[in-house]
Design a binder for these strands. Structure first.
Lengths: 107, 107
DNA sequence: TGAACATATGAACAATCATTCATATGTTGC
DNA sequence: GCAACATATGAATGATTGTTCATATGTTCA
């Protein structure tokens, strides 16, 4: 099911400190409601910064800062098309992680 | 696969603001390496505070504070047995969420 | 080239948060 | 009751971080 099945099942011992730090850093990306909203918005369509700003009713600057953070974590990618820059989720793991989180919340 | 399948697949629209905040709050619990290490340690066995303190080489107080936070989020539970208090993961979602995170990291 | 638009970025500020230190609470056995 | 042990808790502090404001970069079109 998971590449990290041995982790879910608790076998093979504790990973290295650095890996657990990386894991915490990954979850940090999902630990802010603005970033979660951005990723959620990107689940359906590619969007430009202004689309997201108005969808979340937030400043262009705030969104831009967060997109940069998400990009540095390789969770979103972008492409330029003239003046506008289109953002998208980098891969399906984002969807999986969010869905898994919802599973816990919706119980 | 998931209770929140419609989320993973991106159908049914955007959840309420409060839900996305709750989601961010959940991931906040995994966004600190100390807490991740604690949860990891609890994957195999029930442990008491002192067990965890020495396993992570951290202060009893620091661990106790984090355990309180994890407990308030219903991610860990405990039971008293004389002087010692045993902690355990509340349910398997914790393992699933961590495993999912590792899937992304280990790519 | 210059104006208009879209996005990025740096500095500053307020808020959040993890750890430490000191101390309190709770439990056991004598 | 009292000492010894196990854990919890409150206040203080240093570090991290999200947003804002002002401004810079980059692109198009006339």
């Amino acid at each position: 099911m998971h590449d990290a099945e041995h982790i879910r099942t608790g076998t093979k011992g504790m990973p290295k400190d650095e890996q657990l730090s990386d894991l915490a850093d990954l979850f940090k990306m999902f630990a802010d409601s603005t970033r979660v909203k951005i990723m959620f918005a990107l689940m359906e369509n590619e969007l430009c910064v202004r689309d997201i700003s108005s969808a979340l009713n937030m400043t262009q600057s705030a969104i831009s800062h967060q997109l940069k953070i998400l990009k540095s974590a390789n969770l979103v990618s972008n492409r330029r098309e003239g003046k506008t820059i289109w953002y998208r989720l980098s891969d399906d793991h984002v969807k999986s992680i969010i869905a898994q989180g919802f599973d816990h919340i919706l119980e």
